[in-house]
Deep mutational scan, measured.
Amino acid sequence: MPGGGPEMDDYMETLKDEEDALWENVECNRHMLSRYINPAKLTPYLRQCKVIDEQDEDEVLNAPMLPSKINRAGRLLDILHTKGQRGYVVFLESLEFYYPELYKLVTGKEPTRRFSTIVVEEGHEGLTHFLMNEVIKLQQQMKAKDLQRCELLARLRQLEDEKKQMTLTRVELLTFQERYYKMKEERDSYNDELVKVKDDNYNLAMRYAQLSEEKNMAVMRSRDLQLEIDQLKHRLNKMEEECKLERNQSLKLKNDIENRPKKEQVLELERENEMLKTKNQELQSIIQAGKRSLPDSDKAILDILEHDRKEALEDRQELVNRIYNLQEEARQAEELRDKYLEEKEDLELKCSTLGKDCEMYKHRMNTVMLQLEEVERERDQAFHSRDEAQTQYSQCLIEKDKYRKQIRELEEKNDEMRIEMVRREACIVNLESKLRRLSKDSNNLDQSLPRNLPVTIISQDFGDASPRTNGQEADDSSTSEESPEDSKYFLPYHPPQRRMNLKGIQLQRAKS
């Protein structure tokens, strides 16, 4: 015994090295194993092979420090690593049964499904019991997946119906949107047309105001020219009257000059006056001389005659003075006559000038009245044309509004008919989907599995289990394997941990 101590140590070291070499393959693929292994699927088989106990299973599945599946799978690998070579062998058998691809990844061999460990530990009855539990578990999982698949199909059909409904609603909204954009385009076109009409109206108003201003300026210029013409006519008439007055005065002077006595007659009258003065002096001298030589009687007679002569001279002087006064009065009367005649001529000139001015103003008033009548006639014609244009424009607008209203009513009726057609199509689609759903539900009910399987069917299934373990590994792997896509769409199922009653199965096998 003492001599065998070193050999035992060498043997233990060799086993430990082999164990480390075995687990080295697992550690190399630890990331892939932790990512894809579900500990809840492996722990029943590991407990059946007595590699882990209930406490280890509870620690792996329910520990609060292991929230994710990767953490739980890593903890399970750590626990199996502590179990040595047996933990490695049982772990590979569980991978061979549940995850053939991972088994091939770790060992590089094809899975054979021999279950040597569980046969050694529990015997064939334990293997049968384990396989029966796994089959029931798989059936329950398949039923749950079928239910989930039916629910998802129903949800899918519902979503398809909602999608069709949303599509129809979208078509309806597109119809309304198209109608909205069309009405918006019509409104924009009408606004552009309105702005264009306003611009045209403004341009016409500006043109009309400009023409009116030009016409008023032309009328004012015409009036100024007419006033200048009238003033020139007035000056012409005044000059004609002055010329006529000057002509009359010149004719009067000419007549006075023609009626003036001649120079010879004046000289002859002056000679006669001198001769008479000479004779008068001679007679006076004779009379003076006679007075001195005459007697007293003759002197008395001469005195009487002288007195008579003096009286006659006085009378004559009075007559001469009277004649002079009369001549002066006649001259003054002639001057007054000439003055009055001049005033008369001036008044006649003024009267004729005023008459011509009156005629001029009368003509001017007639011209202004004619212009006013023409302006009123043009204004009435413009008003009439404007009223006709406004009436025609309003009539066109009324007809346009009428046609637009008819078009809008027809478009609304068309839209309502399209919407009604879309709604009826939606109703038809809904009815078809309901009919299809009812038909599929009836087919699913016919094809669904019963909840409680008979014992004979279970025994028959387990009677055929042994050949399947040898020759149909691919079928078992397809039913027991969970793909990543299934984990996305289906909830994980945790079967209840219970042991099955095998009395009925044993009785059935005894009868057979």
Rank of each mutant, 00 (worst) to 15 (best):
Leu138Ile: 06
Glu93Ser: 04
Tyr88Gly: 08
Tyr11Ser: 11
Thr43Ser: 04
Gln140Trp: 07
Gln139Glu: 09
Val60Ser: 04
Asp146Gln: 12
Asp9Glu: 14
Ser68Thr: 13
Asp9Tyr: 14
Gly4His: 10
Val106Arg: 00
Glu134Arg: 12
Ser34Trp: 00
Ala21Pro: 12
Asn71Arg: 12
Arg72Leu: 00
Glu57Met: 02
Val90Ala: 07
Gly4Arg: 13
Tyr88Glu: 04
Glu96Gly: 12
Met142Tyr: 09
Glu27Ala: 05
Leu76Gln: 02
Tyr11Cys: 12
Pro39His: 03
Pro111Asn: 03
Gln85Ile: 05
Arg35Phe: 04
Leu95Met: 15
Ile79Cys: 03
Glu54Asn: 05
Gln55Val: 12
Asp17Cys: 12
Val51Ser: 02
Thr43Asp: 01
Lys137Gln: 07
Asn62Trp: 12
Glu93Ala: 14
Trp23Cys: 09
Asp17Leu: 13
Thr82His: 11
Arg86Cys: 15
Gly126Tyr: 13
Tyr36Phe: 09
Tyr45Gly: 02
Cys28Arg: 14
Gly126Pro: 13
Val51Gln: 01
Phe115Pro: 15
Cys49Gln: 15
Glu57Thr: 01
Gly108Leu: 01
Glu125Gly: 11
Asp53Phe: 05
Lys16Cys: 09
Pro6Gly: 13
Lys145Glu: 06
Asp78Ala: 02
Glu13Tyr: 09
Gln55Arg: 02
Gly4Asp: 09
Ala40Leu: 04
Arg30Thr: 01
Ile136His: 11
Pro44Trp: 00
Phe115Thr: 13
Asn133Ala: 06
Glu54Met: 11
Arg30Pro: 01
Pro39Gln: 01
Leu127Tyr: 13
Gly87Cys: 03
Thr112Lys: 15
Gln140Leu: 13
His31Thr: 09
Asp78Ser: 03
His31Ile: 06
Glu59Ile: 01
Phe115Val: 15
Gln85Lys: 12
Ile79Thr: 04
Ile79Ser: 03
Asp17Lys: 12
Gly5Asp: 13
Gln141Pro: 06
Glu122Thr: 05
Gln55Leu: 06
Val89Leu: 09
Ala40Gln: 03
Asp78Lys: 03
Pro39Glu: 01
Val60His: 03
Gly4Glu: 12
Pro6Cys: 11
Gly84Cys: 04
Ala63Met: 02
Trp23Thr: 07
Asn62Gly: 01
Lys137His: 07
Lys137Leu: 10
Asp58Leu: 05
Val89Ile: 10
Gly87Ala: 07
Leu105Glu: 07
Thr82Tyr: 06
Gly74Arg: 00
Ala21Val: 10
Pro64Arg: 03
Lys137Trp: 13
Met132Pro: 04
Tyr98His: 11
Lys69Ile: 04
Glu121Phe: 06
Glu7Ile: 09
Glu110Gln: 14
Val135Ser: 09
Glu122Ser: 06
Glu122Val: 04
Tyr45Pro: 01
His31Trp: 11
Met132Leu: 08
Gln48Thr: 06
Asp146Ser: 11
Val135Met: 04
Lys83Ala: 08
Pro111Asp: 02
Tyr45Lys: 02
Gln140Tyr: 10
Glu121Pro: 13
Asp17Tyr: 11
Leu46Asp: 01
Thr112Pro: 09
Leu131Gly: 06
Glu101Ala: 14
Val119Asn: 15
Met142Gly: 13
Leu138Tyr: 05
Gly4Ser: 12
Gln141Glu: 10
Thr82Pro: 05
Gly84Lys: 06
Val135Tyr: 14
Arg47Lys: 01
Glu93Trp: 06
Arg75Ala: 04
Ile118Leu: 07
Lys41Asn: 02
Val120Ala: 05
Leu76Cys: 03
Thr14His: 14
Lys83Thr: 09
Ser68Gln: 01
Val90Lys: 10
Gln140Ile: 12
Gly74Cys: 04
Cys28Tyr: 07
Leu42Asn: 02
Glu59Asp: 01
Asn25Leu: 06
Pro64Asp: 00
Tyr11Met: 11
Gln48Trp: 02
Arg30Asn: 04
Lys41Leu: 04
Leu138Ala: 15
Glu134Ser: 15
Val60Asn: 00
Val51Tyr: 01
Glu57Leu: 03
Glu13Ser: 10
Thr43Gly: 04
Lys137Thr: 14
Gly74Ala: 14
Glu24Asp: 08
Lys16Pro: 13
Val89Met: 14
Ser94Leu: 08
Gly5Pro: 12
Leu92Met: 10
Asn133Lys: 09
Arg86Leu: 07
Pro64Asn: 05
Gly4Lys: 13
Ala21Asp: 11
Arg75Leu: 04
Trp23Tyr: 07
Ala40Asp: 01
Leu22His: 06
Phe115Lys: 09
Lys143Leu: 09
Gln55Tyr: 09
Pro44Asn: 01
Ser94Trp: 06
Pro64Leu: 08
Ser94Met: 03
Asn71Cys: 06
Lys143Ala: 11
Met142Asp: 07
Ser34Pro: 01
Leu131Ala: 10
Ala40Val: 05
Asn62Ser: 07
Ala40Glu: 03
Thr128Gly: 08
Phe91Ala: 04
Val120Glu: 05
Pro100Gln: 07
Thr14Tyr: 11
Val119His: 15
Asp146Glu: 13
Gly126Phe: 10
Lys69Gly: 00
Pro44Arg: 01
Lys16Ser: 09
Phe115Met: 15
Leu33Phe: 05
Gly126Ile: 13
Val106Leu: 05
Leu76Lys: 02
Tyr99Arg: 03
Met65His: 06
Lys69Pro: 01
Thr43Pro: 03
Leu33Cys: 05
Trp23Lys: 08
Gly4Tyr: 13
Gly4Ala: 12
Gln48Ile: 03
Ser68Pro: 00
Glu101Lys: 15
Glu7Arg: 14
Lys145Met: 13
Phe97Asn: 07
Asp56His: 02
His124Gly: 15
Gly4Val: 13
Ile118Phe: 07
Ile52Glu: 01
Thr43Tyr: 00
Leu46Thr: 02
Glu18Pro: 12
Val26Met: 09
Tyr45Val: 05
Asp53Ser: 04
Asp58Gly: 04
Gln55Trp: 10
Asn38Asp: 04
Cys28His: 08
Leu127Val: 11
Gly87Gln: 05
Asp53Met: 03
His31Arg: 05
Thr128Ala: 05
Tyr45Asn: 01
Gly108Pro: 00
Ile79Phe: 02
Val26Phe: 04
Leu33Val: 13
Lys143Thr: 11
Leu102Ala: 08
Pro67Arg: 13
Thr128Val: 09
Ala73Glu: 00
Ser34His: 01
Met8His: 13
Pro6Trp: 12
Tyr98Leu: 14
Asp58Gln: 00
Glu93Asp: 14
Glu121Thr: 11
Ile79His: 01
Ser94Ile: 00
Lys145Gln: 11
Pro6Asp: 13
Lys143Ser: 13
Asn62Ile: 08
Asp17Gln: 12
Gln139Pro: 06
Arg47Asp: 03
Asp17His: 11
Asp53Ile: 02
Asp20Pro: 09
Asp10Met: 15
Gln85Met: 07
Leu95Val: 07
Lys143Arg: 13
Asp56Val: 02
Gln139His: 13
Val90Asn: 15
Asn38Pro: 01
Leu77Phe: 07
Glu18Ala: 12
Met32Gly: 02
Ser116Ala: 07
Thr112Phe: 08
Leu77Cys: 03
Leu15Pro: 11
